[in-house]
Simulated scan of single mutants.
Amino acid sequence: MILLSTRSVAKPWGRTDLPQIFGGSVAKAIGEVWFEPPSEFDALLIKYIFTSEKLSVQCHPSSDQTLAMGLGKQGKDECWLVLDAQPGAQLAIGFEREIDDEAMRAAMQDGSIERLLSWYPVSAGDFFYIPANTVHAIGAGITLVEVQQNSDITYRLYDYGRPRALHFEEGAAVALRKPYPAHHHQRLTATGSAQLVDGPHFRLDRLDGAPDPAVATRYAGSLLVVPLDCHLSLAGSTIAPGQCALADGLAAITFPATGLSLIAQPV
Rank of each mutant, 00 (worst) to 15 (best):
E114C: 09
K73P: 01
E102W: 01
A124D: 14
K73G: 01
F127R: 07
F95A: 08
R105I: 02
G75F: 10
A124S: 15
P131W: 05
D101N: 02
D100K: 01
R97N: 10
W80D: 03
E53I: 07
L55E: 06
E102A: 07
M108R: 07
S63C: 10
A137Q: 10
G75V: 07
Y120G: 05
K76L: 08
Q65W: 11
S112I: 01
S123I: 13
V57P: 07
Q58Y: 13
D101M: 09
K76Q: 05
I93W: 12
M104Q: 05
A140E: 12
I130A: 06
D101A: 04
E53F: 08
G111C: 08
D64L: 13
E53P: 04
T143P: 00
A132L: 01
N133V: 04
P131A: 01
L67V: 12
P87H: 04
I142L: 01
L144G: 00
S123H: 14
M69V: 00
Y129H: 10
D126A: 08
S63R: 06
T143R: 12
S62L: 07
D101F: 03
A92P: 14
M104W: 07
D64V: 15
G75N: 08
A107V: 06
E102V: 02
D77E: 04
G94E: 15
D77Y: 00
E96H: 08
E114H: 11
F128K: 11
H136C: 03
I99D: 02
R115Q: 13
Y120I: 11
G141Q: 07
S63Y: 03
I138V: 13
V57S: 12
I138W: 06
D126S: 10
V122G: 09
A68D: 15
G139E: 10
T66E: 15
E146R: 00
M69E: 15
G139I: 10
I93V: 15
I99Q: 12
